[in-house]
């Protein structure tokens, strides 16, 4: 636990934790707005986004991929809203139609392009590749102060940290708007707060989080990060601020514990090799949620205690 840890485990753990934080923050509000599955829809359209980016640019460089994924996420969000309004279709079904269609288009394009280098990227996009984000330039804890070694940090770390910081900042700045537009949208409008804009901004922020995180933990496991930590946190408290704090704690715990279990778990069981860290992180977050469902101090519904609401 020294040089080897810094070299092989520190950066993946940090990236996993930052990705979990970036997703859990907007996830808190998505859950309270009954929009949890927007995360599901967005994460599925990441694949078509990167395929289109590849076909347009011909490279598998990170930046075009990220831009493609973000573009696809925005297109999906707009399409879902359009289908919902134009077709007067309930939101869940509208999401189901849009994200599966885009995903199917992505897979078809991919098969048509027939490039093995991108083939690798499908699994990467779906399942992530956290283990490969190592810091080869490091030789020990001292490397944290060594500019030459720091320059070799995986670029994903800086990217993820930036996105997590921006999302944290946005959440703090728009805290009051998010809170009131989620709790009482009609009242928010009478205050002159653009409630619809707040909702759209939240979804776009979630899309950015999903796109930044898919690179590290894989697009589908991003869903677990959007939902499990905030859902577990909701069962721990009745204060929004405290809930968000719990969700961040659960997110970091899932990331660190999941990574450790994936890396060392098989060894402890006497097997060799390691299992998917991203998958293990999702499992841990699910287990945390399961425990919260059974033991969380505020797991039961309370609104039902009041008499049925009149019309």
């Amino acid at each position: 636990m020294g040089a080897e840890f810094v070299q092989f485990s520190l950066t993946p753990m940090l990236i996993g934790a930052l990705a979990a934080i970036a997703c859990a923050l907007p996830g808190n509000f998505l859950i309270l707005r009954r929009q949890a599955l927007i995360g599901d829809a967005i994460s599925h359209v990441v694949l078509p986004g990167i395929v289109v980016a590849f076909l347009l640019t011909g490279t598998v460089a990170a930046l075009p991929m990220l831009i493609g994924a973000a573009g696809a996420a925005v297109v999906a969000v707009v399409l879902i809203e359009g289908v919902r309004r134009l077709g007067r279709i309930e939101p869940g079904a509208a999401m189901g139609v849009v994200f599966t269609t885009l995903f199917a288009g992505g897979v078809l394009l991919l098969e048509q392009s027939d490039t093995s280098s991108v083939h690798l990227d499908v699994e990467h996009a779906l399942m992530g590749n956290l283990e490969s984000l190592i810091w080869l330039g490091a030789s020990g804890w001292g490397s944290l102060a060594d500019p030459a070694a720091l320059a070799q940090l995986p670029p994903e770390l800086g990217r993820m940290a930036l996105v997590a910081a921006i999302i944290g900042l946005l959440t703090a700045v728009f805290w009051r708007w998010l809170k009131i537009a989620t709790f009482d949208e009609g009242f928010a409008r009478t205050l002159g707060i653009p409630a619809a804009g707040v909702g759209f901004g939240l979804v776009i922020t979630s899309a950015v989080a999903a796109v930044a995180a898919f690179d590290a933990v894989g697009s589908i496991i991003v869903i677990a990060m959007f939902i499990c930590p905030p859902a577990a946190a909701r069962l721990m408290t009745n204060r929004l601020g405290v809930q968000v704090a719990w969700s961040l704690g659960f997110a970091v715990l899932s990331a660190v514990l999941g990574y450790v279990l994936a890396g060392y778990g098989p060894l402890w069981l006497g097997a060799t090799g390691a299992v998917s860290a991203a998958g293990m992180i999702a499992i841990v977050s699910g287990v945390i949620l399961g425990l919260a469902c059974v033991y969380g101090p505020h797991r039961a519904r309370q609104g039902a205690a009041a008499e049925p609401a009149g019309r």
Binding site: I31, R34, Q35, A36, L37, G39, D40, G92, I220, I221, I223, A224, M225, F226, I227, C228, A231, R234, L235, A278, G279, M280, I281, A282, I283, S285, G286, V287, L289, C293, G296, H298, R299, A300, R301, Q302
Partner: peptide, 19 residues
């Protein structure tokens, strides 16, 4: 629990797929 169905769907989807 007090969680709505959409959260339950997402939670099961994410963690089972992770497994």
């Amino acid at each position: 629990t007090r969680l709505a169905e959409d959260a339950a769907i997402g939670a099961v989807l994410g963690s089972f797929f992770g497994l």
